[in-house]
Simulated scan of single mutants.
Amino acid sequence: MQGDNSASYAGIGGIGSKIWPLTGPEIISRDKLKTLRTRSNGPGLIRLAVHLTALALGVLAVYFSAGTPWLLIPAMLAYGIVIVLLFAPLHECSHGTAFHSRWINHIVGFAVAAFTFRPFLYFKYRHAAHHTFTQHEDHDPDIVPFPTSLRDYFGQIIGLSFWPKLVGTLWRGTTGRFTEEEREFLPKSVWKQVMLEIRLLALLYVAITAVSIYFASTIALVYWLLPRVMGEPVLRAIRMAEHTGAEESPNLLANTRTTLANPLLRMLYWNMPFHAEHHLASSVPFHALGRLHDEVSPHLQCVSKSYFHVHREIIREVLRNGRAGATPAGQGA
């Protein structure tokens, strides 16, 4: 398949495909949806300012903790969590809903994507496939399989598969050697644009590395790379909670989980814990997801009190499956 997905895709931000007709959005009235879809620059700029302030506080925490390991490590971890949560504005900008102005969505999206080692345009199309084929075993590129063991669970949390995929994306984008899966969600018409963006990112990262080595500077390492890596398990845990353990069906009311996270996390994650709501109406900006939740919450089939509760249930299920699959004593192979 050479990027010609017109027969299968509903388009960026689409709600289904011919082979995976999603259901659930019909519960939202057209009038209500029209009201909620209103976009504005104000909420996005305010939320971005809050996130940038949190990043600045993280930098200060790391700076003043230097030389004191028992303070420095927690400071870098907290700062790293704020960095990885930049995934939220990247995600929102990819939908064009973070801001009313298209150019602000593109600039902010590209900037936060670059800071977290992701190519913005590539992500935009990959994420469109995730929305079109949510929880489809073969066609959802972001499906997270239910862990088969505790080792598998913790491997997913620390990113054993995530980091090779991220590095592989940059390498393949630089060389233009896209996989068959990537050719399914990347139209051939955008290959050159995607490759150009990734090559520019690669040049940027090489330049930063070269300058750091030349000046024997650890600034990029301490204030960017290490915190970015340290914070990733938190984002892996959040992303796992969005769909893992939910139905692998086209029913958006059951295949996506909403998590009633605390206000601070909702703030820094741009209301993405309201994830089922987002999948039901991806054209609704982040700042209106709380109102959408009030509208659809009686219909949602997968809602959790917190991320802690989600992962407690996942671990319990993993252990339960492990016990069920254990070979009885005396019957070993």
Rank of each mutant, 00 (worst) to 15 (best):
Q2T: 06
N5I: 07
G11K: 10
G13P: 02
I15L: 13
G16Y: 01
S17R: 09
W20S: 05
E26W: 13
I27F: 00
S29D: 14
R30S: 10
K32R: 15
K34V: 00
K34F: 02
T35G: 10
T38E: 15
L45W: 06
I46L: 12
I46N: 05
L48K: 01
G58K: 00
L60T: 15
L60M: 15
S65Q: 04
S65Y: 02
A66K: 08
T68Q: 14
T68V: 12
P69D: 06
W70D: 03
W70C: 02
L72Q: 10
I73G: 02
P74V: 08
Y79F: 12
I81W: 01
I83A: 01
I83R: 06
V84E: 03
L86M: 01
H91Q: 13
H91D: 09
H91F: 11
S94A: 15
S94Y: 07
H95I: 04
H95F: 09
F99V: 04
F99P: 01
I104C: 00
P119H: 00
P119G: 00
L121Q: 08
R126F: 14
H130E: 07
T132D: 05
F133K: 07
H136I: 03
D138F: 07
H139I: 04
D140H: 03
P145N: 13
F146P: 02
L150W: 08
L150N: 05
R151C: 13
Y153K: 07
L160V: 12
S161M: 09
P164R: 06
K165G: 11
L166R: 15
T169I: 09
L170A: 05
T174A: 13
T179V: 07
R183E: 07
E184I: 09
E184W: 12
E184V: 09
F185N: 01
L186M: 08
P187K: 04
P187H: 01
S189V: 05
W191D: 12
K192E: 13
M195I: 13
I198V: 11
I198K: 11
L200G: 08
L200V: 14
A202V: 13
L204E: 04
L204F: 11
A207Q: 04
V211S: 02
F215R: 14
A216P: 00
A220V: 11
Y223P: 06
W224L: 11
L225Q: 06
P227L: 00
P227T: 00
M230I: 06
M230V: 04
M240Y: 06
G245K: 03
N251L: 08
N251S: 09
N251E: 11
N251Y: 06
L252S: 03
L252A: 03
L253F: 06
N255D: 08
L265D: 02
L265W: 06
R266E: 07
P273I: 05
P273R: 08
F274K: 05
A276M: 03
A276H: 01
H279D: 12
L280C: 05
A281M: 07
S283M: 00
H287I: 09
H287F: 14
L289Y: 05
R291V: 02
H293R: 06
H293A: 07
E295R: 02
V296H: 02
V296K: 08
S297C: 13
Q301P: 01
Q301F: 03
Q301T: 02
S304P: 07
K305P: 15
Y307A: 06
I314M: 13
V318F: 00
G322Y: 09
A333V: 08
